[in-house]
Write a protein that binds this DNA or RNA. Structure first.
Length: 486
RNA sequence: GGCGGCAUAGCCAAGUGGUAAGGCAACGGCCUGCAAAGCCGAUAUUCUCCGGUUCGAAUCCGGAUGCCGCCUCCA
């Protein structure tokens, strides 16, 4: 079955057919590096990482480009505020971006180009636009002539005439049309600049993507992604620039992810409700955040709130509890590492269901439902085995481990060993609860002694006492464990 | 004003013409000294409302209501 993707350009799901069979060229807009990443960035990166992983799993050779906008007004302003160079500021936040996105278990793209390292390519594209009559200069600035491009508005479904009705505040009188946008911006004194045929200046926001996309993926490529907010004007302008410069279709499939809301409210700096990734990860396991983000379809809006993230954590616990159970199982199942090394392309019914979901416009929400089905049937088979029955299920478990890990690999979860996961969870819980583990262990030993004496009244008193400390006990065959109640 | 999206159980969320996945919570059961974990079972005769098309609609069409996004930097 082929993959079907929703294309913003055509507003329909289409069969995914890369221009070069077997190869996929994908460009996703990366961050402007002037501040810490928030959960909105996380969603975009995680969503396209999931798509990247799935395309690879489907056997495509994927070239994935994600840029860094490392020069623009916001960066200049921020650098001035902080008294540092734009370069140093950008570098600082690129490092942060990598730390955050690596923590979320995102694969690095094939190439991560920076705007400032592609000035010559940018200038060449602008020159092409001049040659083709789509650009004009004014006082060292260069503008794109929107009216000269027939298809302008085709991505966002806007018509220039309709938009002109909506009054824009400060119309630059040097523009031929209010919607003409800057390709090259003259530098003011003290600002970073590069030499160009139009004087000292820096590239406009949109042009870098056209130039770098063409540089690494060609003048025409398969997928271009980003947040929905980029549809207009950013992506609309990219199309105009690229198609005007190169005279061919810029991108075949346009994919856009939905927003993250915080407690039903749009997340924005002015509302002060934006949440940074690093702040969230202090109390939330990164894979729980991933699972949360992938539990909704990528085009739908998603609401971030405490309950949602807690639920995702509980769900993830359920998965790791199974992995731990597999590891400790007496039945001679393949161990996780061996299974992970195999992961051959078996076509089980579960994998089929999972890939069908992913094939339908990367429906990770449906796909994660399949994963939980597998978790449940797996536990059921283990129950049967432990009860001394269900020997016939044993062979099924081998391939089911593989399914489990394959699904996890697409979603980018289950990357840790159960032991690592449990340790990490414990650490985060310890940070959120002020408890002396020594005291807990002492109480547990006391209770063990009481239980050995069959003094269940005392044992239960200790259990209750721990419960007031937000701790629940688990009596297992290999001893008593404890964990925090969420 | 222009363009677009969404409304499914207490909450989250799939389903886009064939009779409502999954997760969390709650309830009953198995298991357990009691629990926890796991499993099993029962939970929406119904998908915001009103019309229409159809043998058949949560799914398509028309209308109403509500919520939201974009049109300005934004993932």
């Amino acid at each position: 079955m082929t993959i079907r993707v929703y294309n913003t350009l055509t507003r329909a799901k289409e069969p995914f057919e890369p221009m070069i069979p077997g190869k996929v060229r994908m460009y996703v807009c990366g961050p402007t590096v002037y501040d810490s990443c928030h959960i909105g960035h996380a969603r975009s990166v995680v969503v396209f990482d999931m798509i990247f992983r799935y395309l690879i799993a489907c056997g495509y050779e994927v070239t994935y480009v994600r840029n860094f906008t490392d020069i623009d007004d916001k960066i200049i302003n921020r650098a001035n505020e902080l008294g540092m160079t734009t370069q140093a500021l950008a570098e600082k936040y690129i490092i942060e971006f990598h730390e955050d996105m690596d923590a979320l278990n995102n694969l690095r793209p094939t190439i991560e180009p920076k705007a400032t390292e592609h000035i010559p390519q940018i200038i060449v594209v602008i020159q092409r636009l001049f040659e083709n009559g789509y650009a004009y200069a004014a006082d060292g600035d260069v503008f794109f002539r929107v009216s000269a491009h027939d298809g302008y508005g085709k991505l966002s479904g806007r018509k220039l005439d309709d938009m002109e009705a909506g009054a824009r505040v400060d119309i630059d009188t040097r523009k031929e049309n209010p919607f003409d946008f800057v390709l090259w911006k003259a530098s003011k004194p003290g600002e970073p600049f590069w030499d160009s045929p139009w004087g000292k200046g820096r590239p406009g926001w949109h042009i870098e993507c056209s130039a770098m996309g063409a540089d690494y993926l060609g003048e025409s490529f398969d997928i271009h992604g980003g947040g929905k907010d980029l549809i207009f004007p950013h992506h609309e302008n990219e199309i105009a620039q690229s198609e005007a410069a190169f005279g061919k279709t810029f991108v075949k499939y346009w994919l856009h992810n939905g927003f993250v809301n915080i407690d039903q409210e749009k997340m924005s700096k002015s509302l002060g409700n934006f949440r940074t990734i690093r702040e969230i990860l202090k109390t939330c396991h990164p894979e729980a955040l991933r699972l949360f983000l992938l539990s909704s379809h990528y085009r739908s809006p998603v609401d971030f709130n405490e309950q949602a993230i807690r639920d995702a954590g509980v769900s993830l616990d359920k998965i790791y509890a199974l992995l731990e159970r597999i590891e400790k199982s007496a039945a001679d199942l393949p161990d996780l590492e061996t299974a992970a090394a195999v992961l051959e392309e078996t076509q089980t019914k579960d994998w089929r269901r999972f890939s069908d979901a992913m094939n339908d416009d990367f429906n990770s929400a449906l796909a994660s439902g399949v994963l939980f089905d597998v978790v449940r049937t797996f536990n059921r088979r283990l129950d049967a085995l432990e009860a001394g029955a269900g020997e016939e299920d044993k062979t099924a478990l081998g391939s089911q481990i593989i399914d489990l890990l394959r699904m996890g690999r697409i979603l980018g979860i289950m990357a840790e060993s159960p032991g690592e996961y449990m340790t990490r969870r414990r650490q985060m819980d310890m940070a959120a609860n002020t408890v002396d583990p020594e005291a807990v262990e002492a109480l547990i030993r006391e209770r063990e002694a009481a239980r050995a004496d069959r003094d269940f009244k005392k044992a239960d008193e200790i259990r209750d006492r721990l419960k007031t400390m937000n701790i629940v006990l688990e009596d297992r065959s290999d001893g008593t464990g404890w964990k925090f109640i969420r």
